[in-house]
Design a protein around this nucleic acid. Sequence first.
DNA 1: CTGCGTCACTCACCTATGTTAAGAAATTGA
DNA 2: TCAATTTCTTAACATAGGTGAGTGACGCAG
Lengths: 244, 244
Amino acid sequence: MSQPGAALHLHLAAFAALSSADRKLLDAAVARKVRTIGPRKDIISEGERPRVVNVLLSGWAMRYKQLSDGRRQILSFFIPGDLCDANVFILGQMDHSIGTLTEVTYAEISATDFEHMMECSTRITKALWWSELVTLAVQREWTTNIGQRSAYERLANMFCELLARLHLVGLADGNSFDFPLTQNDLADATGMTAVHVNRTLQQLRRDGLIDLNNRHVTVTDPEGLKAAAQFNPNYLHLDGGVSN
Amino acid sequence: MSQPGAALHLHLAAFAALSSADRKLLDAAVARKVRTIGPRKDIISEGERPRVVNVLLSGWAMRYKQLSDGRRQILSFFIPGDLCDANVFILGQMDHSIGTLTEVTYAEISATDFEHMMECSTRITKALWWSELVTLAVQREWTTNIGQRSAYERLANMFCELLARLHLVGLADGNSFDFPLTQNDLADATGMTAVHVNRTLQQLRRDGLIDLNNRHVTVTDPEGLKAAAQFNPNYLHLDGGVSN
DNA sequence: CTGCGTCACTCACCTATGTTAAGAAATTGA
DNA sequence: TCAATTTCTTAACATAGGTGAGTGACGCAG
């Protein structure tokens, strides 16, 4: 990514074309405090008090919950441009953790900077609401995915979603993208076991839908994959919203 | 409920004490357009364009997604006081449906009224953000519930959550509450089959944790139920938030 | 008051997915 | 560059939960 804020621009641009003033505002907010952190570390843990809004600039991260007996549910993946919950600092404590999967750079936006940004631009305010609503919609889709779909459909869905989202921020090359997750991560994200993820992945490969190796995915049959997943991208709300 | 807006006041009061001016603002917004609709009807369907924010005043409703082959995932329950997504009208179309379970009365708040309300009161704006963030947190908990927990734990969780939420708006009497869901609804909400819900419910009864009949639930052993569910209410963020 | 639909409940049987274990391959780190 | 560790893969076996097909009890619409 040539410029730190680029992924964020692209992310929000899915909702509305931003003015150059908007872009400057975002860049300023995102330049104030940039951090780098290694793979498999927590950015913030359950129980802590959120004080800032984080924006992922590069790398992959995840939101997850850990149960007392060690079971882990991965709740969402963060890719560059993603915001971790506008206005979280309203809440007293985190009900889940945010951890990195790869090395990550992210920007912290303070509560006051965040509020300032919203005061300065109605368009940004709306774009942030949009982003929040999409986060919610994605969480619902995951609930549906885990609740109703078979292992095969679930994984197919996951790849469809990631391809669409990575495309948006310029991180997919055609139907390929870098994919730093282990099968274990995939298991915890889809509510299945690593063994069964492995079996199911083999099946997806045998069916010629995807190619996954060396931490890289190529969707070899995009239409087939979408069909297998019954993938309907409406929940990503990439149609530009209503108020444009 | 003596007064239409009462449940909404109680709902938001979990975050911040509202001033009487705030309460008046809310009451006015909620009085503008009140509708009544019978049980098992859609308030808005997937694909439609959301134009208003709905606030549930009485009865139970649900958010759900239907797959093309008929599978249905219930994504959340609405009880009185609940808002259906602040600012949804930003989105071009619904990615899920909202339907009633019982007869329901609800208020429609127009986009302009909604925005007006947020301009007039910072406290209300924050309370609405809080409500939105809690909705998200609940959705995450459901994802975790379905992804990681056994049938028994899942149902236990569901009852714990509902008891807590109904309490908040004055709709639980000690450890009892009216419960209009069928076992089929419960199945679609927890990602299991009705047969297995039935089996598991029997087990919860045999273990003396709950009593469910005649559309009425009594939690006979609250501590036992919480333990069985590994219930941690932190995700409901009933601690009053940070900015009070 | 009756006939039809819905709902709770059961049973017998089945299968998708989990469990445990172990070796091969890849990656990391000293 | 080799040892240690993590990840991928396979296999044999176990089980939670799904399927399909009922029965009886209500409740309500005609």
